[in-house]
Design a protein around this nucleic acid. Structure first.
Lengths: 258, 258
DNA sequence: CGATTCCTTCCGCTGAGTGGGAGGCTGGCC
DNA sequence: GGCCAGCCTCCCACTCAGCGGAAGGAATCG
């Protein structure tokens, strides 16, 4: 590095996108120097880029000098069709389930080797749960995850079972046992977990299916999370199934129309 | 413009941000040429930028060749603290109201001269409403808007009353009458509209207040939208007030804790 | 089958972005 | 109070990354 300038701009447009990459859910508010370090950008460059991004509205400067994601990115993010149709169709059904049970209700899809939570309805007195809209949780340790994994292609199952993370002392990490569980999920049509992701909670989930030319396909999973002391969890299976069928039916209708 | 190159890059980082600006809620899916035109970017430049943005994940290429906002921007957008705390605190209360009334419930804040809808809970059989999370509606034609406007500084009120848009034939656009209505909203503690934003719907809204050193401040508005044939709308006032007070109380607690 | 529209790729030019460094500001420590 | 360390802000000469005109495909249409 003898020269003085112009070595930057690897391949993405300016370093602006690298700067944005410095932000994630574990670090939503950052100082200039943190951003510079996390994004591997020289301080002065980061400073200028942050100024431009802030002027555009992608970021916002807090009174304490830190930067955070701004309203414009929020707006744009809401335009993302990340399961937009699925969410719109499913939300009323999630509300129905929530109204009937007062429990925390989730809708998740599989994204690679994770369960991506795309929608959530949670009441006030619900147990605190780790999942949030936009968060990704392992496929082998949650109800919705098991449902999605049970419907996933073999290579995904193999990849997940190769190194299942241990989340709590109840997490099932033995590949053979996980395979048996997945088979059971397929047979029974629902998945159940007990304190496998977070202590103190049970979960129950069912698949959301749509009819495809090649046969029914699992496009999402619908689940509830309840405190451990609840004994009647399996009574919710029919409730979830009704809602899941409703979602599947609506999705088919929307697709046919489109 | 005699030269050939390098005239671009006005002031924002690359044209990438201009390209992103081409997307809005009225145009969430665009072709290359549409984007080039909407953003005032030469076709080949737009093409390259779109490639980079797509590689980064900001955009996604649809099977039909169009571009749309991608998952990465969705992720980042969810990090935006756009009333994040308010939303988290308020959502359970919105659910309570929805459970009690089965109506469409909104939470909005004032942003400049618009009402910004930050959260929404709508049932299945609800009337179709124009508002969506992230959308902005005029302050003078909706229930939540009037509540927010009634609590806004004078210069905002003046600016809005200078040129109120006509949304339907029932929209109140006479400044004098609007001022009288705002006074009434302040006096009674709620706002009501009848088909002023969209035909076929009524709305009702109350302010969400928090205690500040300088006295109570209106930080948001909580409202419902119902079909026009409903006659018992005012019965919902106490329901909304209870929820609004609950939200205010929670907000104060969170702030004190922080 | 030529016309039209839209997308993709190429490549020489140049000025916009780059980043080292100087300078300011703040707060903590001796 | 003086010094130092950690941040942030600003400046400016260098240069190479982005720019965009233009040509070449691909797809659609009448």
């Amino acid at each position: 590095m003898a020269g003085r300038a112009g070595t930057g701009g690897r391949s993405v447009t300016s370093r602006a996108l690298q700067v944005l990459d410095a932000f994630d859910s574990t670090a939503p508010r950052l100082t200039l120097s943190e951003i510079a370090e996390r994004s591997g950008t020289p301080l002065s460059t980061a400073h200028r880029l942050l100024g431009e991004l802030t002027a555009w509205g992608a970021l916002r400067r807090r009174p304490d000098g830190r930067y955070e994601i701004g309203r414009k990115l929020w707006d744009l993010g809401l335009l993302a069709p990340v399961q937009l149709e699925l969410r719109q169709v499913a939300t009323p059904f999630l509300l129905d389930v929530h109204t009937a049970t007062r429990d925390t209700v989730h809708l998740a899809v599989r994204e690679g080797r994770s369960a991506l939570y795309v929608e959530r309805v949670s009441g006030r007195e619900s147990v605190p749960v780790v999942s949030q809209v936009g968060s990704r949780l392992p496929l082998h340790a949650t109800g919705v995850g098991k449902v999605l994994l049970a419907a996933a292609p073999d290579d995904v199952v193999d990849a997940v079972l190769r190194a299942p993370t241990r989340e709590t002392r109840h997490t099932v990490v033995a590949p053979a046992r996980l395979r048996r569980e997945l088979a059971e999920v397929r047979r029974r049509g629902y998945a159940r977990t007990a304190e496998e992701m977070s202590l103190g909670t049970l979960s129950l989930a069912v698949p959301v299916r749509v009819e495809r030319p090649a046969g029914p396909a699992v496009v999402a999973a619908l689940g509830v999370v309840v405190p451990s002391h609840r004994r009647d969890l399996l009574r919710l299976v029919p409730v979830l199934e009704v809602a899941a069928r409703g979602i599947g039916r609506e999705l088919s209708r929307v697709h046919a129309f489109h």
